[in-house]
Design a protein around this nucleic acid. Structure first.
Lengths: 209, 209
DNA sequence: CCGCATCCTCATGGATACTG
DNA sequence: CAGTATCCATGAGGATGCGG
């Protein structure tokens, strides 16, 4: 990134994360630390030279940490504490993007259920008042995720095998609509966007907050 | 901007505002609607073909509105309601950028006092508890701005001529440090970063919230 | 003047192949 | 697996032109 040469926080932020792919790499690492190969598959379409380039830049600027993890001293990338603070502006953009998402995926779009691990909490937290202590399974695209309420907000993680109070088989766009409050459970069911297994009062409570 | 082809709100946001200069154009328009020429001077370094290109794109995507204003039917650009909602993620990036700003401006950096109209409220509001009803003058780079507390948060605008309770002549980096709480008034004065004219208790109260 | 459009050059991005 | 190297396509930057 060529410098903007402006003494402005936004310009300086963009010199660090404004280049193409940078924020999407941060997105992947906010979901979880990852290997080089994981990043390639989580970022369909990125050229390998660009990924290497961006990772070097993000490491040099203090956003990303490169470390050797595990038995085999495998290369692993993770966010630094400062890099993880990008969660807030990214959640802001996720909320802002809602009008762009309601139309659903294009045919050419790839979709990874793990991306919901950022979007659902961002949408729910922005309107949360009561927080039921709930663990709900989200079966989206065949992958089972787990929505749970914590003290600090909502979390979506890979299902860890613990018993779930209900399971929602859902279409990605429908799930976002529910999380944003743009859609209620009855309508979503009527439209065939979600299919609830178990007590749907639990699901209603979680998405009605 | 070439599409990322991902059904992810962040990716779709970036397809709208992720290209170089886009968010800086939004910054200028968050400060105030502007003419083409105003944007050129507020965005030093932008090529005129790029500015025209970006404005077309932002208009086509519904972020910016182009309208004819004033006597002479002069072309004016302003944010749409949706575009103005970018204030939240931009404020997030402004807060995130603080570690990049404490070192002060480079020699090659340009600086425009109006940029503080976004940064100061973003930094103050993130830690605001009590809000004194204060109108403080900010004399930075020779331009007089006015910091005032409203119900919804802090505002920085061009000085409108009304009486000020105090005036702070300040260095940009010092002012950001004060707003972020990284610097207190005594230290800033001792370092010669700020020079207070009038009752400095007012200034202390405003920046200590 | 203002609000762009055109032209040209050079830096960056993208796709693919290849390597320690 | 974790990247480099290479080559081509695209986009950025700067200068200039031009109608209103």
């Amino acid at each position: 990134m060529r410098s903007y040469d402006q003494y402005c926080g936004l310009a300086r932020s963009l010199e660090v994360v404004g280049d193409r792919w940078n924020l999407l790499i941060v997105r992947e690492l906010l979901i979880s630390p990852a290997r080089y190969r994981d990043l390639q598959t989580g970022l369909p379409g990125i050229a390998t030279n660009l990924l290497a380039d961006r990772l070097r830049h993000l490491e040099a600027t203090g956003v990303v940490e490169r470390r050797l993890a595990g038995e085999s001293n495998a290369v692993e990338y993770a966010l630094t504490a400062w890099g993880a603070e990008l969660r807030t502006p990214i959640e802001g953009l996720l909320r802002w993007s809602l009008p762009l998402m309601v139309s659903g995926p294009k045919d050419s779009d790839t979709f990874r259920p793990t991306w919901l691990a950022l979007a659902i909490p961002a949408l729910l937290d922005s309107r949360a008042t009561a927080r039921p202590a709930t663990a709900i399974g989200l079966d989206v695209g065949g992958e089972l995720l787990q929505l749970s309420a914590t003290e600090s907000g909502f979390e979506v993680d890979p299902h860890d095998g613990r018993p779930l109070e209900a399971t929602v088989r859902a279409d990605p766009a429908g799930l976002l609509g529910l999380a944003a409050g743009a859609l209620d459970v009855d309508t979503a069911q009527a439209l065939g966007l979600v299919d609830i297994d178990g007590d749907d009062a639990i699901v209603r409570a979680a998405f009605a907050c």
